[in-house]
Design a protein around this nucleic acid. Structure first.
Length: 420
RNA sequence: GUGGGCGUAGCUCAAUGGUCAGAGUACUAGACUGUGGCUCUAGGUGUUGGGGGUUCGAGUCCCCUCGCCCACCCCA
């Protein structure tokens, strides 16, 4: 409640706690595993960069740059920005470290927090986490297919099947301007019928009219020219070969010519994975090709492609669709009396060194309350040690799931878990 | 930035403008003095988000403010 303390996390920023954290770790582990098997290596660029890095790459007139960046001046009055996305940093890193001198293609993944100053809503936060991948050096549609299929495997590994793959090609610097022109021409005498937002879009980014949600605009654009019909020969060939490879890989996708991305740097292939069950912010992952960005950052002409997945949204889907098992102690040691307490601490020490999760009961409290705690922790086994056990040299064990129990000699403890 | 909804115990929620703001759940302990779950009993917390106003009287009505949620914009 808001009356609780005076100190609260900032708007749009949240603590990630157990048990949720186990789902996060599951996602991170799956990413590491799958991405490694495709030859992607982790890199960790800083979270803060010089502001112009984002302005240059994302685009001066994008919403991200115009109103969503966390931008500050540092003590030397340099403008710095908390990264709103990962690709710009990775490209800067690629160029700065001359990674283009390494054998091509170079493939990297990263994960961590991103920051955008937006009004929070379902699935949208001011600090949010992405895992992303970037592949540098390959212009071939096979790389596009590889990346999309890797994303699919990653989602499948997590057990997420109810997602939609949408792909599109937005052309290149040769064919897109022509398309933009024909789009402007098409809408020019229909402007009055578009919603106010779209009238604004007409001037700033007419492609955005294509994914407007207003019914009237959807009708209005039914006969609008399609980017996929306006691609130049090379872009067309690239796209066709990608689609054919996706077919061979049995990726179920839909071509969505209305899919538009909010960052300026994309060329040719763009794609997005969405889920019905997420509410209005339904993109789980998105990416595309950006063949000119490395050059713009001062590197050699280097085609590249990547994507980013939204951690919070993946985790949300997992919470809804998959049953989770949370880790529990292997053993709880209930102990009564001073000699038993000392013995218990030794046993715990020894078993923890074998990598087991051991919880030690509070010697000062009753056996009953120690048992209750073992139960609440969902410990697999309980050891019971008191004066009797110290004297006889045998302790009692119990498996909580079915109450089976027995005795074991204190000298054989280290082998207790071997056959379990 | 724009619009809508909601703020009562740790959590989920009750309380016609009228006594001292309650219940379930969770937590801790006991009943069972060395064996968890089930049952019963006991225990504690609220500046009713905050501030102001109307009223004999405000959790309830009005205004302001803060926070959260949802949607638009946009995006992961």
């Amino acid at each position: 409640m808001s009356s609780d303390g005076r100190y609260k996390a900032l708007k749009g920023m949240q603590d990630i706690l157990p048990p949720d954290i186990y789902i996060w770790q599951k996602v991170e582990n799956a990413a590491r595993e799958i991405f490694s098997s495709y030859g992607f290596k982790e890199i960790r660029p800083p979270v803060v960069e010089s502001t112009d890095i984002f302005v240059r790459s994302i685009g001066e007139n994008t919403d991200i740059v115009e109103k969503e960046m966390y931008t500050f001046n540092d003590k030397a009055e340099r403008s710095i920005t908390l990264r709103p996305e990962g690709t710009a940093s990775v490209v800067r890193c690629y160029v700065e470290n001359h990674l283009y001198n390494l054998p091509s293609p170079q493939k990297y993944y990263y994960s961590g927090p991103m920051f955008r100053y937006e009004r929070p809503q379902s699935g949208r936060f001011r600090q949010f986490y992405q895992i992303g991948v970037e592949s540098f050096g390959s212009p071939h549609p096979a790389m596009d297919a590889d990346i999309i299929s890797m994303l699919r495997h990653f989602l499948l590994r997590l057990g997420l099947k109810e997602v939609k793959f949408q792909v599109n090609s937005i052309g290149c610097e040769r064919c897109r301007p022509d398309y933009k022109e024909s789009l402007l021409a098409f809408f020019s005498d229909r402007l009055g019928n578009l919603c106010p937002d779209c009238r604004r879009r007409y001037g700033i980014n007419p492609l955005r009219i294509l994914d407007c949600k207003v019914e009237r605009c959807i009708e209005m654009r039914a006969d609008a020219p399609r980017i996929t019909d306006s691609l130049c020969h090379d872009c067309r060939t690239h796209f066709d070969r990608l689609l054919s490879l996706l077919g061979i890989l049995k990726v179920e996708y839909i071509v969505n010519p209305d899919m538009v991305r909010g960052l300026d740097y994309y060329t040719r292939t763009t794609f997005e994975v969405t889920s019905e069950s997420l509410g209005s912010q339904n993109a789980v992952a998105a990416g595309g090709r950006y063949d000119r960005l490395v050059k713009e950052f001062g590197g050699p002409e280097t085609p590249a492609i990547g994507f980013a997945v939204g951690m919070e949204r993946i985790v949300e889907l997992l919470k809804k669709s998959v049953r989770h098992e949370y880790p529990a102690p292997n053993l709880f040691i209930a102990n009564i009396g001073d000699p038993a307490g000392k013995k218990s601490i030794l046993i715990a020490d020894e078993l923890r060194n074998k990598g087991l999760w051991i919880e030690l009961g509070d010697n000062e409290t009753s056996l009953k309350s120690q048992m209750r705690r073992a139960d609440k922790l969902s410990a697999e086994y309980v050891f019971i040690i008191g004066d009797d056990e110290i004297n006889s040299g045998k302790l009692k064990w119990k498996r909580l799931s079915d109450s089976t129990n027995g005795e074991i000699s204190l000298s054989e403890i280290s082998s207790f878990f071997i056959n379990k």
